[in-house]
Amino acid sequence: MQLESMYQEIILDHYKNPNARGLREPYDGESFQVNPTCGDEVTLRVKVDGDNGESRVTDVSYDGQGCSISQASVSVLTELVTGRTVREACTTMEAFVELMQGRGQVEPDENVLADGVAFAGVAKYPARVKCALLGWMAFKSALVEAGQSPEANGVEVT
């Protein structure tokens, strides 16, 4: 059934038991993102230590409300980027965005995306892609606000 291809167990698990939920201090950058077509919201904070090029994401916290896809996606995000260098985190973000915009034609790399591969099925539903990307858009904006744009860390963003 198609429904199961979108709602992988991993997604439902993250939706019901999200990681790192609740906003924390201190932080260096914060972003609020809303999907104007449905009203889903994410506020995400990022703490970064170290200089550009060597900087590391030391904490990500968030709050939000919305569908299982948007809320599970931001929960997976925290697992994928916390503790990584900004460069690694941005590379992962690029891989995730590429997967989501691939209309189901992109083969995800589990080594890069870990639980993020569960969203491959969502990419076949164009109306839901924005849901999956909401948290990642917040992450990217929060990094920029923290003075840590992907470009400054050597990652080309499409």
Partner: peptide, 25 residues
């Protein structure tokens, strides 16, 4: 069940409904 998710299940059964705030936020 978030409205988006409910709508997705309904869609999988052939039911076309609207989900979201319907331009009345």
């Amino acid at each position: 069940v978030h409205p988006h998710d409910a709508g997705q299940v309904l869609d999988s059964l052939g039911l076309a409904v609207r989900v979201g705030h319907h331009c009345a936020w």
